[in-house]
Design a protein around this nucleic acid. Structure first.
Lengths: 194, 194
DNA sequence: AGTTTTACATTGGACGTCCGTCCAATAAAA
DNA sequence: TTTTATTGGACGGACGTCCAATGTAAAACT
């Protein structure tokens, strides 16, 4: 069975299995054995492709962020104005790819357990900084640097908050409602006084 | 040393210790032994006052929600109009008592690990339902039932989102900024068309 | 008031379980 | 023959839970 160049395939399989496991039984029940079994491989293989369990978890989180990033880049490429690019970021933040229920709970679980590991904390910090920076970049030409700061904070928070609500109530099929609400909030922040 | 009626005292001590432990070393490192040691008691006592570890965790979460609830009730008692009561809910949601860094990370950790336990999930669900219901009750007389639904969802989400940001960046000293932003959002939702 | 009894508080370690990690062995492709 | 992929179990450690033993304050009794 063994062929060469299995590395990227197995890594992806294990990442997918990790997401599914966290979703099904929760973070603390997502053991190496369970993840391996769900991926259809033995437990030993995990440590052949990842340094340890935490490394797999970090890779899982990075993979989720990468989906998000790629979708945002793609959508911003075709946008032609700051407002359009702002909408693109908002649209991508509720991207279909990550609007699956599985990715939801996995993301949330890693959120809650980030304090355990320096690595996870760092990845999370990068996500926040990038989202804020992207929002800020489009907002500044619209409303100036000062008000853009607050607007970026608010829009980012609303994205996370709506996300959280949908993650917990488990209604991942409807991505357009939170998108429209976030756009409306952005409009209000842009039009609003001070 | 043992006196009668230690039950409420020890329970509170253990709950406080649980919050502190989760904050310091993360959720998965908050073992029964560590919590007990931080409370200054032996490990056995934990199972004398709580059914098991999960029961202690659930009680911890309930205690945090109770602080929130009491503060909201207190503030709404003196409010005289729907808008004032809406502001009271918003104010209480960033209450000083729970704006401590410790409570922050504990809350977040329990969020992320809610899927493990039916109990935690239920408590979290109750919190969301209550917040939404309270917001809705004050919004309906202002903008009608239909638009109130969306406004309540958005305000609740913004509260959670801003909370999350402050929890992760760890800046618990400034409670007034998120309050003002949430009030501004509420104003926009009330004034806005659609 | 002094003594006994009762009920509770508390300890600290034993027990069984489960987990992450490691490793020797095997198998297949190059 | 060499390299890579993969297995499955062994190992040590950590954790939650349980329990027998001990100490003490309060109540009951004489």
């Amino acid at each position: 069975m063994p062929k060469r160049g299995m590395k990227p395939i197995r890594r992806q399989q294990l990442i997918d299995a990790a997401i599914a496991s966290i979703h099904e039984h929760g973070f603390s029940s997502a053991t190496v054995a369970r993840i391996a079994r769900k991926a259809g491989v033995s437990t030993g293989i995990v440590h052949h492709y990842f340094a340890d369990k935490n490394d797999l978890l970090a890779a899982t989180m990075r993979a989720m962020l990468d989906i998000l990033r790629r979708e945002a880049v793609e959508r911003m490429r075709v946008a032609r104005s700051p407002l359009e690019r702002l909408y693109a970021i908002i649209h991508a933040s509720y991207g279909d790819a990550q609007f699956g229920e599985e990715v939801f709970s996995a993301w949330l679980a890693l959120y809650g357990n980030a304090r355990d590991s320096q690595k996870l904390q760092r990845i999370l910090f990068i996500y926040h900084r990038r989202l804020h920076s992207n929002l800020l970049h489009e907002l500044v030409p619209l409303i100036g640097r000062e008000r853009a700061q607050e607007a970026a904070l608010g829009i980012g928070a609303l994205i996370d908050g709506l996300w959280l609500r949908y993650a917990l109530t488990g209604r991942p099929d409807d991505a357009e409602t939170p998108r429209a609400m976030t756009r409306a909030y952005a409009d209000a922040m842009i039009a609003g006084k001070s």
